[in-house]
Design a protein around this nucleic acid. Sequence first.
DNA 1: TCTTCATGGATAGTCACACTACCCACGGCC
DNA 2: GGCCGTGGGTAGTGTGACTATCCATGAAGA
Lengths: 198, 198
Amino acid sequence: MKMSELSERSGTTVATLKYYLREGLVPAGESLGATRADYSEMHLQRVRLVRALIDAGVSVAQSKRVVETLDSPPTSRHDLLGKAQYALPASHPDVAVSAEVTDLVAGLGWQVSPDSPALRSLTGAIAAARSAGVPLEPESLTGYARATEGIAAVDVAAVPRDDLAAALHRVVAGTVLVDPVLAALRRLAQEHVSSGAT
Amino acid sequence: MKMSELSERSGTTVATLKYYLREGLVPAGESLGATRADYSEMHLQRVRLVRALIDAGVSVAQSKRVVETLDSPPTSRHDLLGKAQYALPASHPDVAVSAEVTDLVAGLGWQVSPDSPALRSLTGAIAAARSAGVPLEPESLTGYARATEGIAAVDVAAVPRDDLAAALHRVVAGTVLVDPVLAALRRLAQEHVSSGAT
DNA sequence: TCTTCATGGATAGTCACACTACCCACGGCC
DNA sequence: GGCCGTGGGTAGTGTGACTATCCATGAAGA
């Protein structure tokens, strides 16, 4: 398809598409001479992914890291999570993992790499909440953790079995884009639970 | 305390504090004449809350709505959730609630107001994820919803019983600031679950 | 063939946001 | 009496995400 069609179908202006191309968020189309290029369904998908990431609050620079990862698929299923974790935008990337977090994970019996960026994110997020007057007792954290096991079970079940590239796409895009879904569900569940209904 | 002390203890420059005061994010201190004012522990708490919200990605304008809500506490426990939902920053505030979301909530047996902003956020978040190639099957959504019930149970259990103002603070701040904690836990749980350990 | 128009490629401009810097006048405080 | 911290105000800064304009080219319709 032509750029104008890519623009229409993705709901993105041509100027913005050019910007994404410049920034490397979307690969160049197949050149058909100096003044024409052909874009495929893959390009359309990519533009939609980039738009969804940016609308979800991910910066252009972080989005670039994400899509670059998608362009170099993992060699094995075992690589999947590692590649995804490394590509995903992480908050508080430079705090030191607290002993509390280490103990929490150990107490849960979770098998996670001590280098996982999520450990740093968790440490930072807990500190931020507490500094704002949200106590976050250890038993609350344990309760939250048990609930996220259920979330992760759904996540893992939804990953395609055979196609590694599709699996990586699902893990990376799903991790970022399902967070807002979970946040909304959490608010609804709060309303339900606090209404006292069974 | 003096403004300089408030600045030190909150880790915020005097210039930024003045900015927050101007924008109404922090109430003025008690005036001690024309060139001096006294700030209390409440002001320090408020500054830390504002900083945490802004660091979490909430805009200044939205943060103002949040803290304004805290300044007019609810008259009853019943008001709590309503006031909080109304004050909290919501994504996709102007989409129409989809039938799928209505059916999902009904199928779960959840009691929620049909006007809840979270229904709109959920509709928008699902649409955003799908447009980026994350399918989100109905059974996945149901699974996520069941897991968020556990999260909400922890949330509700952590709300102070007697002090309504403290309860509102906890609900509002907790809802926004615990989201990143849950996101980090989710990533760790993914790693654990996908490792195949029981 | 002539004209129109979309494209690639590049540069510069815009807009919102969250500060940040500077200024002034005043009034405690040593 | 001099100096610093403050309230109050205005203006400037840096970043991020576009957005607008320009130009040369070449495809496609009249």
